[in-house]
């Protein structure tokens, strides 16, 4: 367990914001940090939750959704951001809104050295691809960041991502499972 275990239910708050914003398609590659939000989206009759085989599929999915008049979000882990830049170029070239919620690995107390290179460059990668990047360091900060990023995406036609800090989610150790 971690220090925020009993503090505001950020997945429920984030889901509520996404629902209120009319997000209808939720592409995701599972991550432990996104587990509850994914389950909430899957249970929401107003959302189509789409499990992806790789994250860039979710970028293309969001482009198709927008062409069809629907809003989409991509849920992924920081490592998945590295799979996305070429597809994000399509969003930038076309001015298609893009919203991503990214759970972080490779930062706060990370034990897996293979997570570090992508975790340490997640924000910069997104920024280079044209995304505005907001960080949420506490559970209470997630929903307002989702709201702000979504407004940037869907109202201003921009690309935006919310990075959900590893400190907030709880650092994975592989020693406390079960």
């Amino acid at each position: 367990m971690h220090e925020y275990a009993d503090i505001p239910d950020w997945p429920a708050a984030a889901h509520e914001r996404l629902r209120a914003l009319g997000v209808a398609q939720v592409g995701f590659v599972p991550d432990a940090g996104h587990r509850k939000l994914i389950e909430l989206c899957q249970a929401d009759a107003g959302m189509t939750a789409v499990p992806l085989t790789t994250e860039e599929e979710g970028v293309a999915l969001a482009a198709g959704a927008w062409l069809g008049g629907a809003r989409a979000v991509l849920l992924m882990q920081s490592s998945g951001v590295g799979n996305c830049p070429n597809m994000l170029a399509m969003m930038k070239a076309c001015g298609i809104p893009f919203l991503a919620l990214v759970t972080m690995r490779g930062e706060w107390g990370e034990f897996n050295p293979w997570q570090l290179p992508m975790g340490q460059t997640t924000a910069a990668t997104l920024e280079l691809a044209g995304c505005a990047v907001y960080r949420a360091e506490t559970p209470a900060a997630v929903a307002p960041a989702v709201e702000a990023a979504a407004r940037l995406a869907f109202d201003a036609g921009a690309m935006a991502a919310v990075l959900i800090a590893q400190k907030l989610i709880g650092t994975k150790t592989f020693k406390e499972e079960g």
């Binding site: 398609q25 860039e56 482009a63 198709g64 959704a65 062409l67 069809g68 629907a70 070429n86 170029a89």
Partner: peptide
């Protein structure tokens, strides 16, 4: 966006 055409189609088809 090479590799993305089918997935753009999926997002559009769902929408």
């Amino acid at each position: 966006g090479m590799g993305g055409a089918a997935m753009v189609g999926l997002g559009l088809a769902i929408a």
